[in-house]
């Protein structure tokens, strides 16, 4: 398993990276490399140029902008896990990162790479949908922002245009009367999810004021279970409603069969993970 030859670029800045990306034919961004390099070793991907973002300090780091948590795109999974800001303002991301791959891979794998790669098996996209995150993107024409909702268009297909680089992820706070749940079923450490579900909700008294459900690896891309959200929004969520929502989650799924399971299993697991995530979210919101 040896990659084909390519030219390696170490840009000095994000601007420089964007320039290299636009000047060179068949160039790819190298973030953590744990999706891209294996694909290159299998020669499923044979880029002529690799632009390595690992040296760019401006893409690292976690900060607060008001109450919005801002995470540099090149922040690694282990940096998320270790960050006091993340623990305090978005512990959901700690739970998510801990279940990504394994310790070594988490030292290389970046949250931006995970999101931008467009792989439905990656964990952060559905989480970003549930968190209602926003992505900061820089391109030849400057900076723009795009909501997670609507960003994931298909397998390896996102709202990131050619020649653009994701620089930051902005996560609004989960309200004080809110809660989250994250459940991921996988075969073993290092595997992608068979199915995963992230639920973020906000209560108004006993009633569910807002809810977002993000699903992992049960469709060509990360998706929201909107019909289930609509069912639950404004309701006092009980087990009967959760059951109905689970049915709607199953209807939203469009998974591909593989060794993790057939369509039926993955669909049922998306529902089961969602049941658990809703219960967890309610428990957290109520506590």
């Amino acid at each position: 398993m040896i990659p084909s030859g390519f030219e390696y670029h170490r840009p000095s800045s994000v601007q420089d990276a964007i320039r290299l990306l636009n000047e060179n034919e068949d160039a790819k961004i190298l973030a953590g490399g744990h999706s891209l390099l294996p694909m290159m070793k299998l020669r499923f991907a044979e880029p002529a140029h690799l632009i390595d973002l690992n040296g760019l300090a401006e893409l690292k780091g976690i900060r607060l902008d008001g109450d919005t948590l801002c995470i540099g795109a090149m922040t690694t999974e282990n940096e998320l896990i270790d960050s006091d800001l993340v623990k305090q303002h978005c512990p959901l991301l700690v739970d998510v990162a801990k279940l990504v791959a394994d310790p070594q891979v988490r030292n290389r794998g970046t949250v931006g790479g995970d999101v931008a790669h467009g792989d439905p098996g990656n964990d952060h996209p559905a989480v970003m949908l549930a968190l209602d995150a926003e992505f900061v993107i820089q391109g030849p024409d400057g900076e723009r922002r795009q909501a997670a909702n609507g960003f994931f268009l298909g397998t390896y297909w996102t709202g990131l245009e050619e020649g653009e680089v994701m620089t930051e992820i902005r996560i609004p706070p989960i309200p004080a009367n809110g809660g989250y749940g994250y459940n991921k079923l996988k075969r073993k450490t290092g595997d992608y999810a068979t199915a995963g579900s992230t639920v973020v909700l906000e209560l108004d008294g006993a009633s569910c004021k807002e809810i977002r459900i993000g699903l992992t690896n049960v469709a060509p891309m990360a998706i929201r279970a909107e019909a289930a959200e609509d069912l639950l929004r404004g309701q006092n969520i009980d087990e009967a409603l959760i059951e109905q929502a689970a049915e709607l989650v199953m209807q939203a799924c469009d998974p591909a069969e593989d060794l993790r399971g057939d369509i039926q299993y993955k669909t049922h697991m998306a529902a089961e993970m969602t049941r658990r995530s809703i219960r967890d979210a309610l428990a957290r919101a109520g506590s």
């Binding site: 394994d102 450490t189 290092g190 060794l259």
Partner: peptide, 28 residues
């Protein structure tokens, strides 16, 4: 609990890396 070497109808071995072929880790 997990090892298998399934083939599809064309005789392609499915799952010939450690992504699919089950070698349990410390956790499992």
């Amino acid at each position: 609990m997990g090892q298998e070497m399934p083939y599809d109808e064309e005789g392609n071995l499915l799952g010939n890396t450690f992504m699919d072929y089950f070698i349990p880790t410390f956790v499992e």
